[in-house]
C-alpha cells in the first residue's frame, strides 16, 4: 500500500458461484495507485474469474466491487470505469485481417484517445513493433501478438491495468523489457497494476504485494518476502509448488 492515497480498486467479500461450484469465495482486497499487485495460484484457483468480475464480463453472486469509487455493475458507471482502465491477456487476439497499426487505431478511437496517431506511433516504437506495423495481424508471431496486446492495453494511459499472463510467449529479452516498462509506468504515471502470471520469478521481481489464491480463497497475502517466509519457502516458486501440490492431494 502506498502511503496515504486512496485505493482505486476495492473488493469486499466477493463471491462468484457457477451453480453449485464456488469459483471465488469471499475475497477482499484493495489496489492503490502506483502499486503492482500479483495474483497467484494454481490453475482453477479463481484468478481469471476475479479479473473477469473486475472487468464486468461476469456478475458477482455477492460482494462488492468499487473502482474509482464507482460500481461496475451499473452500466453508466461501468462505461466510465472502462475508459480509465485497460486489460491485456495472452489468450485474447485481434482482427486477423487488419494490420497492427489499423488495429491500434481502432482501439484509440474506441477509447477516445486524443492525438491518436501520435499515441499509436509511440506504442509501436515502445513495444518494438515498427517492422511489423503494416503487416496483417494473422502473420504475427505469438510474441509479437503479446506485445500488440500490451500496446493496446496502454492506448488510453490507464490508471488501472489488468494483466493476465503479460509476458507469456515472450522471449527473455522482450519479457525483461516489458517488466522494466511496467515498473517505469507504475512509477512515472502512478498506474495501479493487477497482474496474474505463472512465472514466479517475474512476480517476485515486479510485485509490491501478492495475493495467493487457492480454491477461490485468498490463503496468503503480503509482500513477496512475507509470503515466502510464511510458507518457509526458498523462493516464490518453492511456495507455489508446496501450495499447488497440497491442493491436489
Amino acid at each position: 500500500m502506498t502511503g496515504s492515497s486512496l485505493p482505486v480498486l476495492e473488493v469486499k467479500n466477493l463471491t462468484k458461484n457457477y451453480n453449485s461450484f464456488q469459483a471465488v469465495k469471499g475475497v477482499s482486497f484493495e489496489l492503490y495507485p502506483g502499486e503492482i499487485l500479483g495474483l497467484l495460484g494454481p490453475n482453477g484457483a479463481g484468478k481469471t474469474t476475479i479479473i473477469h468480475l473486475l472487468l464486468g464480463l461476469t456478475s458477482p453472486t455477492s460482494g462488492e466491487i468499487r473502482i474509482f469509487g464507482l460500481n461496475p455493475e451499473k452500466p453508466r458507471q461501468r462505461e466510465k470505469i472502462l475508459g480509465r482502465m485497460n486489460f491485456s491477456s495472452t489468450y485474447v487476439a485481434m482482427p486477423y485481417s487488419l494490420t497492427l497499426r489499423e488495429s491500434l487505431q481502432v482501439f484509440a478511437r474506441l477509447y477516445g484517445v486524443k492525438k491518436a496517431r501520435a499515441k499509436v506511433e509511440f506504442l509501436i516504437e515502445q513495444f518494438d513493433l515498427k517492422e511489423v506495423a503494416d503487416r496483417p495481424i494473422r502473420t504475427l508471431s505469438s510474441g509479437q501478438m503479446t506485445r500488440l496486446n500490451l500496446a493496446k492495453a496502454f492506448i488510453n494511459d490507464p490508471e488501472i491495468l489488468l494483466l493476465d499472463e503479460p509476458t507469456a510467449s515472450l522471449d527473455p529479452d522482450i519479457a525483461d523489457r516489458t517488466r522494466t516498462y511496467l515498473k517505469e509506468v507504475k512509477k512515472s504515471k502512478n498506474t495501479a497494476i493487477l497482474c496474474t502470471s505463472h512465472n514466479m520469478q517475474e512476480m517476485e521481481e515486479i510485485s509490491d504485494h501478492l495475493l495467493f489464491l487457492n480454491h477461490g480463497e485468498i490463503i496468503a497475502r503480503g509482500t513477496p518476502q512475507e509470503v515466502i517466509s510464511r510458507f518457509r519457502g526458498e523462493d516464490l516458486e518453492d511456495v507455489f509448488l508446496k501450495i499447488a501440490r497440497e491442493a491436489r492431494l
Binding site: 472502462l82 486489460f87 485474447v92 485481434m94 482482427p95 482501439f107 477509447y111
Partner: peptide, 18 residues
C-alpha cells in the same frame, strides 16, 4: 462472428463500448 473468430470479442467488451 468475425470478432468471435478473431478472438477480439473480449477486447471490445472491456472497452467503454456499450
Amino acid at each position: 462472428l468475425e470478432e468471435v473468430w478473431a478472438r477480439n470479442f473480449l477486447n471490445l467488451f472491456v472497452s467503454p463500448l456499450t
